[in-house]
Design a protein around this nucleic acid. Structure first.
Lengths: 219, 219
DNA sequence: AGAAGATTGTGAACGAATTCTCAAATCATA
DNA sequence: TATGATTTGAGAATTCGTTCACAATCTTCT
């Protein structure tokens, strides 16, 4: 069954990570077009919306298949479906939030996750006065219950919103429990094994990379 | 005064944007090392913390000067100072938040901006029942007052936390007022002129780019 | 049905970013 | 002060990502 591949280090025709990073944006735009009643769009039009070249869109899509029609363009509905399939956006993803402080509460009350299939089904904290309380319809439980909660509720994704000094140890625990995707809100760059995906939400870093241009820009 | 340059499109020895994007992370790590009492660090050690190769750190820094000593490494304090200087992090940056809904309020109450020199000095909304109220010590004013507020309070950076459908028009207004750095929290990719820097905070996009690997990963 | 026009998909060319490599510089030790 | 061990800085080599260019294919119009 398996290929008689000599070296097993690198994957087949691996899709570059930058490409995967752009697909969700394509999905966004396609959804918008669809709700505007647009049935067909070509790479030129898509590129305009997204500020990328038509060639890039075509090349990106070509990693996954042939979704367009020459002389015409892409069926918005078809392409949207395909991309959602590729990204796994048809599934429901159960999410645990670790850390129910100011930030964690804001995340629990953020209405933007659910419409895209990300369901926050559990919340953990180590503050005794929080444990047992309900926040946004989710009962807060002790961090010690992590493993049980992850297994019981079939959780695959974790959102981390704990103070910096706890971040690494929390993430280590998450990895132990088999979590393979982490969204980190703490202002630090935690270490994870290669097999685990992590993205950090870090507004201060974003600001700091812009002040460079404000300081050194045209003057 | 101006150079007699034939084409004025590209800057001198422009620093790649990816490099600028990494500098704030270097600053983070250096601050941590300093507070741990570490006086000297070499590119190997820095790279370990940051998950980048030593060569990359040296190359990145070489765009800005020669900060290290052969056979020894970098003075943590010196390098930190230099990078903060380069990024303009010694200055105080005044920030306006546009949109004081759930998200805007969370941003106003986020304690992570101030220690890094980003001061939220104004908040705008178009909701009459919010205007005039104080949120986290900042009085909410009407969006119409944008221009006056930006001028009066010497604001250079804007944070946008309005509903998607208002985002582009708000950003257009900000650009008109001379704002040149925008941190956008709305789930959309707004268009800005080249001279304006924009970064988007978009947790859903981050999640969606990870589900790709959960769906198509090792199986 | 045939011709003219549009647009994809993809190999090739190009450009950008990362990593390699090593001379030059510094430090540590005797 | 000389020797050996480190480590930087930066050109060269390499890898990675984007854009070009065009054959193949589909649409539209007469």
């Amino acid at each position: 069954m398996a290929d008689i591949s000599p070296s097993r280090w690198d994957d087949q025709s691996a899709v570059p990570e930058v490409v995967v990073g752009r697909l969700p944006q394509y999905v966004r735009v396609l959804k918008e077009l669809l709700s505007d009643g647009v049935e067909v769009a070509n790479s030129q039009q898509l590129g305009q919306q997204l500020q990328v070249t038509p060639a890039q869109i075509r090349k990106d899509l070509s990693y996954f298949g042939r979704f367009g029609k020459q002389g015409r363009g892409y069926s918005v509905r078809r392409l949207l479906d395909e991309l959602q399939q590729i990204l796994g956006l048809n599934e429901q993803w159960n999410v645990v939030v670790v850390g129910v402080g100011r930030l964690g509460k804001a995340i629990l009350s953020y209405p933007g996750f659910t419409p895209d299939g990300f369901h926050i089904v559990a919340a953990l904290d180590n503050n005794p006065s929080l444990i047992g309380q309900e926040v946004e319809g989710v009962k807060v439980r002790a961090v010690e219950e992590l493993d049980a909660v992850v297994k019981a509720q079939n959780i695959t994704i974790a959102v981390v919103a704990v103070p910096v000094r706890f971040t690494q140890q929390v993430i280590d625990k998450l990895v132990e429990c088999g979590i393979r995707a982490i969204l980190n809100y703490a202002p630090t760059s935690p270490q994870v094994p290669e097999s685990v995906k992590i993205r950090s939400i870090d507004p201060v870093l974003s600001l700091q990379s812009m002040t460079y241009y404000l300081t050194n820009g045209s003057e």
